[in-house]
Design a protein around this nucleic acid. Structure first.
Length: 450
DNA sequence: TTAGGGTTAG
């Protein structure tokens, strides 16, 4: 970028103008180089500069500051520099950038304050202002407040009627909070006004309805989408396939696999992993083997999740030896097992009472630099409790402290019902009172006061 | 120059 700029400066017939600078500032901001963007702006603002930044250049910098997490600096820039230094008062876009940034850091009240400030200063709100607040409230889990805000502004603001963005944001949030009735109502409300849904709206509906367990509705939405001239993509099929697998409706899941192939879509590693997981959960290991064969024939490389799915599937039906065999086969495939896979094996081994082998795997994790996490320690501590092996447990508790692996409510549960019984209350207290373990101290005091 | 969405293992 700098090279192109230098080239232009050396060429008398190509003079950069404010748009050129705008592109440069935008490029720098989008590349995360807000500091450089601010320096370009300073250069433009010097006495000897013949090109002054306009409101678009300044908004670009405000948004750059906002998107790089420098929200307070952005606010200070708008309040202290835009009008007085650059002679450009903030406009609708300036405020929209700030409102979005405050929503994203969870400061909704500041976002509301800025909306009010726009009203007081006569800066008009537009559809983006509306959608930014609606989106911010939905992200904060305040879907009801988002709906209320929309209902209130749709008659008051000139651009408050809502567009495809408003509706898909609200519908998506409603479906995620399992408010299917209201989501459907909004969807049809928009339709009845003569607006046809766009692809994002359809995907939002398909995904949300599936998540809410409404597979029939999700499928009929997929049909409507196709009738409207849109195509389902691999992700959309994967969503539906996962939905049917969760409901243990494997037959329909496999039918969708067939359908996606017929329309010319190649199942990806995610499709296969989903179906493998579903078949494992259904205990159909013949289907698992067949699917693995198809996956390889298809040129689709198994991922660490594929192995994790198989390891879990075999553990779940008590075939831990087969699960261990899969772990060993990973070496040949060149895919490194991660802590999810080790945790699964350690957990099932402990549950089966095979703590020694679980500890061997735990040691292997260290050798292979696979980080243990609280789930690993919890599984081992449970196993050690069941075998009443406190000395090893104390060793692990020390390791947790050294590795700054904080206990969670499961750790607290296991240790609180074990250590006091064997007369180790002091050790439990010491473990919980480590400086870094503040969070667990809170859990303990909550529990003891209850 | 600012706003919306979706998939797989513990």
């Amino acid at each position: 970028m700098a090279r192109i700029y230098a080239l232009m400066q050396g060429c008398a017939s190509v003079r950069p103008d404010v748009v050129t600078y705008g592109i440069l500032v935008n490029g720098l901001c989008k590349a995360g180089r807000v500091g450089d963007a601010l320096r370009v702006l300073d250069g433009m603002s010097r006495q000897d500069s013949d090109i002054r930044p306009d409101v678009v250049t300044l908004n670009t910098v405000v948004d750059g500051l906002c998107k790089s997490g420098r929200v307070q600096e952005a606010l200070a820039f708008v309040e202290q520099r835009m009008s007085s230094v650059h002679g450009c008062p903030p406009n609708t876009v300036t405020y929209n950038c700030l409102i979005d940034a405050f929503c994203r850091v969870g400061n909704i009240s500041m976002a509301y304050e800025l909306v009010e400030k726009m009203e007081n200063e006569g800066v008009p709100q537009n559809i983006v202002t509306l959608n930014t607040i609606v989106g911010g409230l939905c992200r904060a889990g305040r879907t009801g407040a988002a709906l209320e805000f929309f209902r209130e502004k749709r008659t008051v603001w000139p651009e408050g009627k809502g567009n495809a963005v408003t509706y898909s944001t609200l519908v998506g949030a409603l479906l995620h909070t399992n408010n299917v009735g209201m989501a459907m109502e909004l969807f049809h409300e928009k339709m009845s006004e003569g607006h046809s849904p766009d692809a994002i709206m359809y995907f939002t509906m398909i995904s949300g309805l599936t998540q809410a367990g409404r597979l029939e509705d999700a499928c009929s939405m997929a049909s409507s989408m196709k009738e409207a001239g849109f195509k389902l993509d691999t992700k959309a099929y994967n969503i539906l396939i996962a939905g049917f697998c969760r409901k243990k409706r494997l037959h329909e899941a496999y039918e969708l696999l067939q359908e996606m192939k017929e329309v010319g879509l190649r199942p990806d590693v995610c499709t296969y992993n989903t179906l493998l997981s579903g078949s494992c959960k259904a205990g159909d290991f013949a289907a698992v083997d067949e699917l693995l064969g198809k996956m390889i024939d298809d040129g689709c490389q198994p991922s660490v999740i594929t192995f994790g799915t198989l390891v879990h599937g075999y553990c779940k039906v008590g075939k831990i030896d087969e699960a261990l065999r899969i772990l060993r086969s990973m070496d040949e495939s060149g895919i490194h097992p991660n802590n999810v896979i080790y945790n699964t094996l350690i957990d099932f081994l402990c549950k089966r009472g095979d703590v020694d082998l679980a500890i061997e795997l735990f040691d292997e994790m260290k050798e292979k630099s696979v980080p243990a996490n609280v789930t690993t320690f919890n599984a081992l501590l449970k196993g050690l409790r069941d075998k009443n092996m406190p000395e090893k447990a104390f060793e692990l508790m020390d390791q947790m402290r050294e590795e700054r692996c904080f206990p969670d409510y499961v750790t607290v549960d296991v240790l609180m019902e074990w250590l006091p019984v064997i007369g180790e209350t002091d050790r439990l207290k010491r473990f919980m009172q480590q400086g870094e373990h503040t969070a667990s101290k809170r859990i303990v005091s909550d529990r003891t006061s209850a």
